[in-house]
Amino acid sequence: MDVFMKGLSKAKEGVVAAAEKTKQGVAEAAGKTKEGVLYVGSKTKEGVVHGVATVAEKTKEQVTNVGGAVVTGVTAVAQKTVEGAGSIAAATGFVKKDQLGKNEEGAPQEGILEDMPVDPDNEAYEMPSEEGYQDYEPEA
């Protein structure tokens, strides 16, 4: 019985440690998101679009440190934060509304985080759909 109880105690310690790591990862992701939003706020009209992409990228980098179902929630929060940063930029006159959601080359930025393969159960990952990809044929 002692062996059984000791095993359960060790398992509990492992769960607590994993929860603490997840909590730490979420806190880091939130900190990076805040950094990115402050970065966007300090940019001029020309830099705002690039700044919004930076927020998304920093958040995406930190999301990889967070495991399990938390990833889905962090990704949703990050996307809403990026959308909010863009709205703030438009409201303050840093950028025109028609410039939001495009990178410096004018290509749409939507789907940055949505296409990231995420499995809350950590069982399997699927690649994003290939609808947006084109076949590449090298020139002879």
Score class of each variant (00 low, 15 high):
residue 72 T to M: 04
residue 65 N to H: 04
residue 22 T to L: 04
residue 140 A to V: 05
residue 6 K to Q: 10
residue 39 Y to K: 05
residue 37 V to Y: 05
residue 137 E to F: 14
residue 55 V to G: 02
residue 26 V to Q: 00
residue 53 A to G: 06
residue 57 E to L: 11
residue 103 N to L: 09
residue 121 D to W: 04
residue 31 G to L: 14
residue 94 F to N: 15
residue 17 A to E: 09
residue 22 T to P: 00
residue 104 E to H: 09
residue 37 V to R: 00
residue 78 A to G: 08
residue 56 A to W: 12
residue 86 G to T: 06
residue 31 G to K: 06
residue 138 P to S: 06
residue 105 E to Q: 14
residue 72 T to C: 05
residue 30 A to W: 01
residue 23 K to F: 07
residue 47 G to F: 08
residue 62 Q to T: 14
residue 54 T to H: 13
residue 140 A to K: 10
residue 51 G to L: 11
residue 122 N to G: 02
residue 21 K to Q: 05
residue 139 E to S: 14
residue 79 Q to A: 11
residue 73 G to R: 07
residue 4 F to E: 00
residue 75 T to Y: 11
residue 92 T to I: 04
residue 3 V to G: 01
residue 135 D to W: 05
residue 125 Y to F: 11
residue 44 T to P: 04
residue 83 E to D: 09
residue 101 G to N: 04
residue 119 D to I: 04
residue 125 Y to R: 09
residue 16 V to L: 11
residue 121 D to C: 11
residue 101 G to R: 12
residue 120 P to L: 04
residue 126 E to N: 03
residue 103 N to T: 04
residue 82 V to L: 11
residue 136 Y to R: 06
residue 33 T to C: 02
residue 123 E to C: 06
residue 82 V to C: 12
residue 16 V to T: 15
residue 91 A to M: 02
residue 44 T to S: 13
residue 14 G to W: 06
residue 94 F to S: 12
residue 131 E to P: 09
residue 58 K to V: 10
residue 9 S to M: 09
residue 95 V to A: 09
residue 84 G to R: 15
residue 31 G to Y: 05
residue 30 A to F: 05
residue 119 D to N: 08
residue 9 S to A: 04
residue 131 E to F: 07
residue 115 D to H: 06
residue 77 V to R: 02
residue 31 G to I: 12
residue 105 E to P: 05
residue 25 G to S: 11
residue 34 K to S: 01
residue 5 M to N: 07
residue 32 K to R: 13
residue 70 V to P: 01
residue 68 G to R: 14
residue 138 P to V: 14
residue 76 A to G: 14
residue 76 A to Q: 01
residue 95 V to H: 01
residue 62 Q to I: 05
residue 127 M to V: 11
residue 86 G to R: 07
residue 40 V to H: 09
residue 59 T to S: 06
residue 21 K to S: 07
residue 74 V to R: 01
residue 133 Y to I: 01
residue 49 V to R: 04
residue 64 T to H: 09
residue 86 G to E: 13
residue 36 G to Q: 10
residue 9 S to W: 09
residue 2 D to H: 10
residue 52 V to C: 09
residue 36 G to K: 11
residue 54 T to R: 15
residue 59 T to K: 01
residue 110 E to G: 10
residue 6 K to R: 12
residue 125 Y to S: 14
residue 116 M to V: 01
residue 34 K to P: 00
residue 32 K to N: 01
residue 46 E to L: 03
residue 78 A to F: 12
residue 4 F to D: 01
residue 99 Q to N: 13
residue 17 A to D: 00
residue 1 M to H: 00
residue 23 K to Q: 11
residue 133 Y to A: 03
residue 119 D to L: 06
residue 55 V to M: 12
residue 91 A to L: 10
residue 124 A to R: 13
residue 120 P to Y: 10
residue 106 G to H: 04
residue 6 K to S: 04
residue 16 V to C: 15
residue 16 V to E: 10
residue 22 T to G: 12
residue 112 I to P: 07
residue 89 A to F: 14
residue 116 M to T: 13
residue 130 E to C: 14
residue 89 A to P: 07
residue 92 T to P: 07
residue 51 G to P: 02
residue 136 Y to C: 05
residue 16 V to Y: 13
residue 69 A to N: 06
residue 72 T to A: 08
residue 123 E to D: 12
residue 24 Q to D: 12
residue 23 K to G: 01
residue 49 V to C: 08
residue 7 G to S: 04
residue 78 A to Q: 06
residue 91 A to N: 14
residue 83 E to W: 13
residue 19 A to L: 15
